[in-house]
Design a protein around this nucleic acid. Structure first.
Length: 499
DNA sequence: CTCAGGACAGCATCGTACCT
DNA sequence: AGGTACGATGCTGTCCTGAG
């Protein structure tokens, strides 16, 4: 049994800055987010989102463990990466934590892994929450460090805690400022190009974006709002441009501090509001389940970018929601008509949508007697529930909302807000996957009774694998990447950057 | 009268190709 | 990087029938 202080130290070493711990129930269903200290003292299983530069490989089969051992040697010898191998509790299962060398991105590492070792995409964790080394297994199975065996050495390899002394910044400016940055002063509202940059810098300071972020954006040739800095670069070189942009940012910091402007963006409030909105979306009765799935995908995007009005391209939402691009577009139109979203000004070519947060109070929800814990974004975005080949649509919704104890049709109608025939069809499909049971003729009026079956996320993965859905998802992603690569090669982006 | 389930029309969705 | 168009496919919802 590992010491609590060791578990805490290791969790802090792997978690991203400001990250919390996700408690995991004994049936492997996510419970709720709590502070890391609370998770450790609870003695329960928990997972944390890894810090930047840290990747966890989930070695959940003998074959993958063998691959993982090779990867470890390769990463240490050729990449000069630090690695920690952990027994994660399950029979023979291992987690391999790899601290990437500076300069290598997670994407590059992932590519190398799949090229050199055909390592499956879905077993590479870098944004997804993962159980830290020595953290308890959900069923109390023994966990241990395999290499290195000492906690001190493991801590050493995992490196210092993430983001000491830095704030957790949102990744995007509010839409208006993002538009100014991307398109420049199209309305002629500013006296000159410097004023445009100054305005952007102030907005950046208010939302907590760093100086480095500001400099890299205004020197990016695609951003017309950085025209002034770009001209400095052309005339006097890169160093001068950095210096000039840095000065603009520093002035903005001084102005914001001197004028006592309170930062407009408060992360805690954001989290509160966005999760209320998400719950409303999860519970509301949509005429099309696609609408809900697309909305949840957009909310997820907003959460990732800390934005109430995220810029999400149709292709981003397509990969997130599993629906075709055209389908996503129609769903967005309907969501605007239904008042869930307000369409804003496009930033560059990307449309923005603002969440109508008051829907959290207005939306008509139905009673939620059971199964509500299954209505969560992680399930909604699982390939099994996003692919029409799998259980996308009504079946996903019915599974999420159906209790695990048998209920008659009229109750299911009340619980789901769906029509009986929709439920029948969905239940039939779910039953074929073993995710629901139908009991013939035991209902109140001679009808059938239904119940859902809770399963582990591994089981969902397995079902998805049987239909090749993980592969489909991967191929979809690759298709988009090819489109984007073709665009880059076509020279259009180069022209854009030059002009 | 309620409910299950089949037939079927219509439309949503997917994939692909195309445009800016 | 983005949005848009359109044919093939198959799901959704309506209507209807028959069983309990």
């Amino acid at each position: 049994m590992p010491r609590e202080e060791d578990v805490l130290a290791l969790a802090r070493a792997v978690v991203k800055h400001g990250g919390n711990a996700l408690l995991i129930k004994e049936n492997n269903v996510p419970d709720r987010w709590v502070a890391i200290e609370e998770a450790v003292t609870s003695g329960r299983a928990f997972a944390v989102e890894p810090k930047p530069g840290l990747v966890a490989l989930d070695l959940d089969s003998a074959e993958l463990v063998a691959k993982g051992l090779k990867v470890k040697v390769w990463a240490e010898v050729y990449l000069h990466a630090q690695a920690v191998l952990v027994a994660s509790g399950g029979d023979g299962r291992r987690h391999l934590w790899v601290c990437l060398p500076s300069g290598m991105t997670k994407e590059e590492f992932k590519d190398l892994l799949s090229q050199n070792y055909e390592f499956p995409f879905e077993n590479i964790r870098h944004t997804q929450a993962t159980r830290p080394p020595l953290s308890p297994h959900r069923n109390g199975l023994p966990v241990s460090l395999i290499e290195p065996t000492s906690v001190e050495e493991a801590l050493d390899r995992l490196g210092p805690a993430d983001g000491v002394g830095k704030v957790n910044p949102p990744k995007w400016l509010p839409g208006k400022w993002a538009s100014l940055l991307r398109n420049g002063d199209t309305e002629g509202k500013y006296e000159g190009r410097h004023q445009v940059e100054a305005a952007i810098a102030q907005a950046a300071v208010r939302v907590g974006l760093s100086k480095e972020w500001f400099i890299s954006e205004v020197t990016d040739r695609r951003n017309k709002g950085g025209a002034k800095t770009q001209e400095v670069e052309d005339r006097h070189g890169r160093q001068a441009a950095f210096k000039s942009a840095g000065k603009t940012y520093d002035n903005a910091v001084r102005w914001v501090t001197e004028n006592g402007v309170t930062p407009s963006f408060d992360l805690e409030t954001f989290k509160e509001k966005i999760s209320a909105f998400r719950e409303a979306a999860e519970q509301a009765a949509f005429t099309r389940s696609t609408d809900r799935d697309v909305l949840l995908a957009l909310i997820k995007h907003g959460e990732e970018h800390c934005s109430y009005s995220p810029m999400a391209s149709l292709r981003d939402l397509h990969t997130k929601s599993g629906r075709a691009i055209d389908t996503v577009r129609r769903a967005l139109q309907r969501l605007v008509e239904q008042d869930w979203l307000t369409k804003g000004e496009p930033v560059g070519e990307t449309d923005t949508y603002t969440f109508n947060l008051e829907m959290s109070d207005k939306s008509s929800t139905y009673s939620s007697l059971g199964g509500t814990e299954r209505v969560c974004t992680s399930n909604v975005t699982h390939p099994l529930f996003t692919s029409p080949k799998g259980l996308a649509g009504r079946p996903a919704e019915v599974w999420a909302k159906l209790p695990t104890s048998f209920v008659g049709m009229s109750d299911v109608v009340k619980l789901t807000g769906l029509k009986s025939h929709q439920i029948r069809a969905a239940a039939k499909k779910l039953a074929a996957f073993g995710l629901a049971e139908i009991e013939k003729g035991t209902g109140p009026k001679g009808g059938d009774r239904y119940r859902s079956v809770d399963v582990s996320s591994e089981h969902l993965d397995q079902l998805a694998d049987e239909l090749n859905l993980h592969e489909d998802q991967y191929l979809k992603k690759m298709r988009i990447e090819r489109q984007r690569a073709a665009y880059a090669a076509s020279g259009r982006s180069a022209n854009k950057e030059a002009g």
